[in-house]
């Protein structure tokens, strides 16, 4: 999906956006002004930053979850395994209000965090939590099949050669998982950047603080500022394109090194 977005951005979306912009006869300086306005910049920082953090958390958490689900057995494992797809199947608005209900100051989880001084809902942290939620299946489902197909003999070989479990893991197992982890990371990131419904409830949408770029686009549309909305959409696509290009290069590098 990451690669797809890359390709599409280049071939379809950016030219499309440019075409639309021409319709509204936005000059370059107008475009630039909209796209680099302080509110816009703050929204990029949040959207991209929180997406990167969320995807990173998912990479670590997803690896642990995939490992446990493939290698160990414990009561309830089958149900949890089936549930991993929940963030993917659940409507985004439902996720949005549910996460808010969970992490609001008087929410199910929020009320335990309040006394510790940790505020989740209506802060940047809430955005990260939401983006972590929706990215969860991507890393797990990418790593699981790799783990399942892993040849047990290489672990046995490493052990007979005298490696400790940690050494086996670090030198033999992890390199096999690396490409899959990067792919999962890219997928989770790509999904998170464009996410709307799961985030806009828990974020609070405060301009300059907890406003994500898709929300800013919607706001501009509500004000009938089509040109502004399009300009931001184009900017968002360009940024995603650049970041995904970088991730794809990383994947290519890891494939050549580890595969």
């Amino acid at each position: 999906m990451g690669f797809t977005l890359l390709y599409l951005s280049l071939i379809v979306l950016i030219p499309l956006g440019a075409a639309f912009l021409k319709t509204f006869t936005m000059t370059w300086s107008q475009f630039w002004g909209t796209v680099t306005g302080p509110r816009a910049l703050a929204s990029y920082r949040l959207s991209l930053g929180a997406s990167l953090i969320g995807a990173a958390i998912n990479t670590v958490m997803g690896l642990m979850v995939a490992w446990v689900l493939v290698r160990y057995t414990f009561p309830g494992k089958r149900i949890l395994d089936a549930l991993v797809d929940l963030p993917f199947a659940l409507p985004t608005a439902v996720a949005g209000i549910t996460l808010t209900a969970m992490f609001a100051p008087n929410g199910w989880v929020g009320r335990s965090l309040e006394p510790l001084g940790i505020k989740v809902a209506f802060t940047e942290l809430g955005v990260v939590v939401a983006l972590t939620f929706i990215g969860l299946p991507f890393v797990v489902r990418t790593v699981e099949p790799i783990l399942q197909d892993l040849d047990p003999e290489i672990e046995e070989a490493a052990a007979t050669l005298g490696a400790t479990r940690w050494q086996s893991w670090r030198r033999v197992i992890f390199p096999e998982l690396m490409p899959g982890l990067l792919t999962g990371f890219a997928l989770a990131f790509a999904r998170a950047v464009g996410e709307y419904g799961s985030v806009v409830f828990i974020s609070g949408n405060m301009p300059m603080r907890t406003e994500i770029t898709p929300f800013l686009i919607v706001t501009k549309l509500a004000q009938f500022d089509y040109a502004g909305a399009t300009a931001l959409a184009v900017a968002m696509l360009v940024m995603s394109f650049v970041l995904l290009l970088f991730i794809n290069l990383l994947q290519w590098w890891s494939q050549s090194r580890y595969a």
Binding site: A157, A158, T160, L161, G162, A163, T164
Partner: peptide
């Protein structure tokens, strides 16, 4: 132990494979 399907570490060079037991 020599495995039927060799179980060589495919992301390491031949040198690194053979050196593995000594390096760990």
């Amino acid at each position: 132990f020599v495995f039927q399907h060799y179980a060589l570490f495919r992301h390491m060079t031949i040198f690194e494979n053979v050196a593995f037991g000594l390096r760990v």
